[in-house]
Design a protein around this nucleic acid. Structure first.
Length: 112
DNA sequence: CGCCTGACCACGT
DNA sequence: CACGTGGCCAGGC
């Protein structure tokens, strides 16, 4: 049987983010077994066309959307997250406690 | 090959 | 917390 490609592992990691939770690009990369490849995750999403992929749950390490503030895509992302119960502050940022991973070095699956 | 770009990240100031 | 800087890696030319 063939091993999953890096791309497939990344997609799987994104699909594995539970509803109502978020993960940083770097965290997704690490979960996919590709530490340090945050930009690969970003590139993938930028080219992705699958509407079934929960791309909106992927945020930057600082908890903000990767899209420019005020852009249509950013509104779309934040709206989707709010709809899932994720709290966004006035600066369009998900508070640290609401995220699973902040940096690539911490325990990815978090306390529980 | 080198050079530039990008849905990124850590770190120092 | 905001900014600038350097690092990273995959692609396009």
């Amino acid at each position: 049987m063939a091993a999953l490609s890096a791309v497939e592992r990344i997609l799987a990691a994104i699909r594995a983010i539970p509803r109502g939770e978020t993960a940083a690009y770097g965290v997704v990369a690490q979960r996919a077994g590709l530490p340090g490849r945050a930009r690969m995750v970003a590139r993938l999403l930028s080219h992705n066309d699958d509407p079934r992929l929960p791309w909106h749950r992927v945020l930057r390490a600082d908890g903000r959307s990767a899209f420019p503030p005020g852009s249509e895509q950013q509104r779309e992302q934040l709206d989707r997250l709010r709809r899932e119960g994720v709290e966004i502050d006035a600066h369009g940022r998900v508070r640290a406690g609401r995220r699973r991973g902040r940096s690539m070095d911490e325990e990815v699956w978090g306390p529980d």
